[in-house]
Write a protein that binds this DNA or RNA. Structure first.
Lengths: 150, 150
DNA sequence: CGCTGTTAGTTGCATATACAACAACAATAA
DNA sequence: TTATTGTTGTTGTATATGCAACTAACAGCG
């Protein structure tokens, strides 16, 4: 039995938490400053834009964006209310709807991307070396894979 | 002028976001399963426990925990309502109060720690090598230092 | 002293999230 | 067919968060 918890791991965890808070709020602030909606909207629009023809069921969006259905249901409401997205009755499954991105949605997505991109540029790309970026990618992949177990 | 944004950095960012979501929800789930309050409570209790005699002003807590005053004000309300914390009028500054941790607060903190610790153990320490943990620490420090500029 | 600007903290309001209960349908088995 | 169970999605409710307006108190200056 090894030491209960290495101080190292705890420190890393705390820093991870803090940086996530800071980075997220920075990105959201940049989007807001540009008069654009929050990041979660972009996530959904991006996924929908990848399937412009077939669209996506809500639960499919939920899987890709890591949102549970409660929130997603209302998030789609908001998107639909602004005309960025539209729901269509699903032929093969009477319960659900298929969500499609609209022209305005595509437009919004393309407006958000430059802001988002420059945020990533400024907050990540400019600060880290290529090696660190690779390392970060690897570490995050490891952490993500770990969670599925249990 | 280099490429606008390396695909690498974008990937790293996405993974960072995803892992944040997953890790946070896992930790919160573990705490909830143990019938314990959310992580933000622990953060505040921890900081207060470091100054058991002098206590802390609210804005000091806010600085350490990265919470803005609006949320903090109500978070302290909730903590106070459960008797984990108590506000005292501040002698030297009539506006504000000094927050102290109570016996029950210390108790709660010590109940939360094992759960929190085992969460970090399981979600971080067990998955990463010591080298990766060091690397993660360094990268997060870099990202955090970066944000203060501008 | 009064005046101004700043800071600490609270509150109202709109919005966002989590959880549970529910309705509608699908899929399977008897 | 009917019954049963699981899945998709919505809604009610409680709670949490962000923002702006507000109060109260500090600090500096005439």
């Amino acid at each position: 039995m090894e030491k209960v918890l290495s101080k190292q791991a705890e420190t890393a965890w705390i820093l991870l938490l803090r940086s996530q808070q800071v980075l997220m709020s920075q990105v959201e602030a940049m989007l807001k400053e540009a008069g654009l909606p929050p990041l979660s909207w972009y996530d959904v629009l991006l996924e929908l834009d990848r399937e412009p023809d077939s669209g996506l069921r809500q639960f499919e969006i939920g899987e890709r964006v890591l949102l549970n259905k409660h929130n997603l249901s209302r998030l789609i409401d908001r998107l639909e209310k602004r005309g960025l997205v539209k729901r269509q009755a699903c032929d093969t499954d009477g319960r659900g709807s298929i969500v499609h991105i609209t022209k305005q949605g595509i437009q919004m997505k393309s407006e958000m991307w430059p802001v988002y991109e420059s945020a990533i540029q400024k907050l990540i790309a400019e600060l880290l070396t290529p090696t660190q970026i690779r390392s970060l990618t690897e570490i995050m992949n490891t952490l993500l894979k770990g969670h599925t177990k249990t």
